[in-house]
Write a protein that binds this DNA or RNA. Sequence first.
DNA 1: TTTATGGCTGTCA
DNA 2: ATGACAGCCATAA
Length: 117
Amino acid sequence: MATYVDSTRSDTYARIYAVIRRIPMGRAASYGQIARLAGIPGAARQVGYALHALPDGTTVPWHRVVNAKGTISRRTVPGSELTQRMLLEAEGVYFDLNGRVDLARYGWTPRRARGKK
DNA sequence: TTTATGGCTGTCA
DNA sequence: ATGACAGCCATAA
């Protein structure tokens, strides 16, 4: 039954946004992690696209999304990465001296991604 | 419709 | 630890 490809051809974004919205405050998740939770494993890049397409007054905590290394990827818009870092620090997520968040500590651990320690 | 790209990931050296 | 290569999937032309 109509798993995906049923509602709209681009419900992908909606799923991605939904997952990001599930990220609790003070937590950070990686693109791949979100893509997987969104039902599109391997499409980590698309997550980045979705974030790029986010509206200005979005309620999606896009700043909680970082790459697998825990660092902030360089985006097309220089300076935005600093904004992301600022927002994360405002939520209690601090970066190390290398400019990386400790995913082992702040990493979001959703129930769907369990199975391994 | 097809082609190319891209805010990434994971493995190998 | 860092650098390079190839793969994935959806969007835009």
